[in-house]
Simulated scan of single mutants.
Amino acid sequence: MSDPDGRDAPAPDPVLSARGLVKRFGRVTAIDGADFDLLPGEVLAVVGDNGAGKSSLIKALSGALTPDAGEVRVAGRPVRFHGPLDARRHGIETVYQDLALAPAQDVASNLFLGRERRRPGLLGRVFRLLDTRGMRAEAERVLDELGIGVRSTSQPVETLSGGQRQGVAVARAAAFGTRVVIMDEPTAALGVAESARVLDLIDRLRARGLPVVLISHNMPHVFDIADRVHVHRLGRRVAVVSPAERTMNEVVGLITGALRVGADGALEEVRDAVRTGVTRTGGGTAE
């Protein structure tokens, strides 16, 4: 990137970063000196084979796991998360693959799950009554802003489609995530049309200036929405590439270890590479 005078503009400082993260479970090293950088306003896809350590990395960044070594930084400042609530206090929200929704409760209650608002004055302070009307009005505003269509914010989540449920989980993250939204396989159990809606939601978050970390095995989705792709292998980052400059096959090669980034930044073939069982189906999906 260049400034108006033709000089290279400095790269923006990461919103969320990590250096040298290590996490061991007995003799198993899940994170092996991993680095990570999320830039302002971008969608960063994190890809890797099963067992590559990407889930452990994301858990360390979202407070669900405490690394044994290394450092996590939020807006350039070192932090140490002792749980997901610490990450939330720093503006990091995570949409887990199981969505963490309460099916029997209504849409508004799920949006404010764990952060319920109480009614003003004596009714809320002494009798601890919830501000149901206010939460439903705010939930409706957030859903409308993100273009998430539901019949009513008072309907139970269990009556929604898979895509609508994903939308509610995304809306909750968007409502409270001030710095980062992390999404773990958001389209894994969805059909084509509902997956397209979720990708549109991610695009809307980016348009609002909220950076998104997308963990996905679906290469077409990654190449459709991501600004950059973080390739994770054997517990560490092996490459960060641009979908505009690399092909799906090249990214899959980095995932399996058949390719690596050379000293000059070019991709080179690795002879006698140890394959990790990645398969390609349905137009480039790595499982």
Rank of each mutant, 00 (worst) to 15 (best):
V170C: 00
Q155H: 14
A108D: 02
G257V: 04
V252R: 13
E71Q: 15
L38R: 01
S62V: 02
D37K: 02
V150Y: 10
R179L: 08
R204Q: 15
H217P: 01
G177Q: 07
V170D: 00
L190T: 06
G253E: 01
T276K: 09
P12G: 01
D272V: 01
V181M: 00
I92L: 13
G147K: 11
A188T: 02
L199M: 13
V43G: 01
S195K: 05
L129Y: 11
V157H: 02
E93V: 00
D106Q: 14
V74P: 07
V238M: 06
N110W: 11
G167V: 10
A189I: 08
D224L: 08
A273Y: 14
R236M: 05
L65C: 06
R117I: 13
S17K: 00
P40K: 06
R19K: 15
A188W: 04
T187P: 07
V150S: 03
E140G: 15
A60Y: 07
A18T: 02
A30K: 04
H221V: 01
A273R: 12
V79C: 07
V270S: 02
G20R: 10
L259V: 09
A169V: 01
S242H: 05
F81I: 08
L199S: 02
R133F: 05
R125N: 08
A207G: 13
G70S: 04
P12S: 03
P120Q: 02
G91C: 05
R119V: 08
R19W: 02
I31D: 06
R165W: 11
R280G: 05
A100H: 10
F25C: 07
V79E: 06
R89V: 12
R117N: 08
L44D: 00
I215T: 04
I92T: 02
G76Q: 04
I92F: 04
Q97C: 03
V261H: 11
I58H: 01
M248F: 08
R246I: 05
K54S: 03
T256P: 08
D86T: 09
G277E: 03
D264C: 02
G134N: 03
G163H: 10
M183R: 00
D106P: 12
R125K: 11
L111V: 13
R7C: 11
G20P: 07
P40Q: 06
N50Y: 09
H217Y: 10
D8Y: 12
K23G: 11
L39G: 00
R172C: 12
N218D: 14
H217F: 09
D3F: 07
F112H: 11
V192S: 10
D184F: 10
F176E: 12
G191E: 11
T132A: 14
D68Q: 09
R133E: 15
R165K: 15
A273Q: 10
R271M: 12
V150G: 04
G191T: 06
